[in-house]
C-alpha cells in the first residue's frame, strides 16, 4: 500500500496577479503580447518584495532562454512603461507591485509602497484601477477614486 505523507508546513512560491489591473492592461493594450509573456517569466527571477534577483541582462537572458538583444529590448521597454522600475531608496530593479506581487499581496512592505507612491507622484505609469496605499504597517489595496 502506498501511503502519501502530506506535510503541512511547506508552501510553493507564488506570484499574485492583481486581476483588475491585468484586465486594465488587456483592455487598454498597455503591453504587447511579448512584453506580457516576458513579464510573467521575470516573476520567476523575483524574490519576495518584487526585486529582481539579478539585474544582469546576460544572466536574465540565459535563465529565460532568450537572446540577449531581445531581453535588453524588452527590459528597456518595460522600464519605459514603468512596469519595471529602479528603486530610489532600495537598490535594484523591481516589478511594479500593483500588477503582480511575489509573495503575499496583503503583506506588501511599506518601503515598496513608498517607491510606488513616488512613481505615482511623478505620474509615471498607467492609472491602475487598484492601487497600493501606505497602511499603518504594510501596504493596503484601494480602488482608485
Amino acid at each position: 500500500m502506498t501511503v502519501i505523507a502530506m506535510p503541512t508546513d511547506e508552501e510553493p512560491q507564488v506570484t499574485n496577479i492583481a486581476i483588475e489591473n491585468i484586465r486594465y492592461i488587456t483592455e487598454n493594450r498597455v503591453l504587447t503580447s511579448a512584453e506580457a509573456s516576458f513579464l510573467t517569466e521575470l516573476t520567476i527571477l523575483a524574490e519576495p518584495g518584487n526585486r529582481l534577483k539579478t539585474t544582469s541582462v546576460r544572466e536574465i537572458a540565459k535563465k529565460l532562454k532568450r537572446s540577449e538583444r531581445r531581453t535588453r529590448d524588452l527590459l528597456r521597454s518595460l522600464l519605459r512603461k514603468s512596469i519595471l522600475f529602479e528603486g530610489g531608496n532600495q537598490k535594484g530593479i523591481f516589478i511594479h507591485p500593483e500588477i503582480m506581487v511575489v509573495g503575499d499581496p496583503e503583506n506588501v512592505p511599506l518601503w515598496l509602497v513608498e517607491e510606488v507612491m513616488k512613481l505615482r507622484q511623478r505620474k509615471e505609469g498607467p492609472a491602475w484601477p487598484l492601487v497600493l496605499m501606505p497602511g499603518r504597517r504594510r501596504g493596503v489595496w484601494r480602488w482608485r477614486g
Binding site: 510553493p12 512560491q13 506570484t15 491585468i22 517569466e41 520567476i44 489595496w141
Partner: peptide
C-alpha cells in the same frame, strides 16, 4: 481586503519556461 488575485505557481511556471513548453503568445 476585497482585492482579487490570481496566483501563478512560480516554480511550475519556471519549469515550463525552462522546457520551452509554451510559446510567448
Amino acid at each position: 481586503n476585497n482585492a482579487w488575485f490570481s496566483q501563478v505557481i512560480s516554480e511550475n511556471f519556471f519549469c515550463l519556461t525552462r522546457h520551452e513548453y509554451m510559446t510567448g503568445a
